[in-house]
């Protein structure tokens, strides 16, 4: 047992620092993807809520496709497809040019597309949960469009959307492990490298699982705080 723990030490003989770097990259990837996905989700939600039939159809198609495809497949399509498409485009400009798509960017785009599809559902429900009268009252008070959104609509929308978004975040955190398949040195890949050298798969994958567990545990604490803050002006059924 003790020599197993020694494998986790930092420095040239242990894998602690490599795995910690991977864990940091995993967090980084998730944090960079989050705003991308939310912005896509917001745009899709607005499209699905719009009066134009075409926009609604486009929004529905988007969610159907990216909620239905396996995340791994989306990742491959973005990574290999993006590479081929960009190479072909570059070929028009410079003959024989070859473009390498950065894996991290491909990971962010693919996970962002998926997160966008899932969060659009959450955000759409939240947008619809804010009664129209709120907006009308705000404009009767002379608030501008942006201030109405910032001071009236958003705080109410935020309260409704938070539990759903917290779910989306947890799923995203776990989905980041898939990028290890296209050779990003995230937590999962660093673990696999350690396994390849030390031949201790059970121990190292268990450690990786525990690190993911810690991440989701910490996230749920953050979201509980956020949810309490967002609903401080709202009394729940059965609350005090």
């Amino acid at each position: 047992m003790l020599d197993l723990l020694e494998l986790l030490s930092f420095g040239p003989h242990g894998w602690g620092d490599e795995i910690a770097q991977g864990a940091l990259l995993t967090i980084e990837l998730a944090l960079v993807t989050l705003p991308v996905g939310i912005v896509i989700g917001l745009a899709v939600a607005v499209a699905k809520d719009s009066r134009s039939r075409v926009l609604r159809a486009v929004g529905d198609l988007y969610t159907t496709v990216f909620r239905g495809l396996p995340e791994l497949l989306t990742l491959f399509i973005v990574y290999y497809g993006g590479q081929m498409l960009l190479t072909r485009l570059a070929d028009y400009v410079v003959e024989g040019a070859h473009i390498e798509v950065n894996q991290f960017v491909a990971g962010v785009v693919a996970l962002g597309l998926v997160l966008g599809a899932f969060s659009s559902e959450v955000l759409l429900a939240a947008i619809r949960a804010v009664p129209k009268g709120q907006k009308e009252a705000a404009s009767a008070l002379g608030l501008s469009g942006w201030r109405t959104f910032r001071l009236v609509t958003f705080p109410q929308l935020w309260r409704v959307a938070l539990p759903g978004l917290s779910n989306n975040w947890m799923v995203l955190l776990k989905d980041t492990s898939l990028v290890s398949v296209i050779a990003i040195s995230d937590l999962m890949r660093q673990t696999s490298i350690a396994v390849g050298v030390t031949k201790q798969p059970f121990f190292f994958y268990l450690v990786a699982c525990l690190i993911y567990l810690v991440f989701s545990g910490l996230s749920s604490i953050v979201f509980t705080v956020l949810e309490n803050r967002a609903s401080r002006g709202f009394r729940r059924v059965g609350g005090h």
Binding site: M170, S177, S180, M188, V195, K199, Y205, L206, C209, Y212
Partner: peptide, 23 residues
């Protein structure tokens, strides 16, 4: 259920597939 819902399926799959090879 906390363990299996809080960790990625990919990690669980590796844990069992490669872990079994070890034992």
């Amino acid at each position: 259920s906390y363990f299996f819902r809080g960790t990625p399926l990919l990690a669980q799959t590796f844990l069992i597939y490669y872990g079994a090879g070890q034992f």
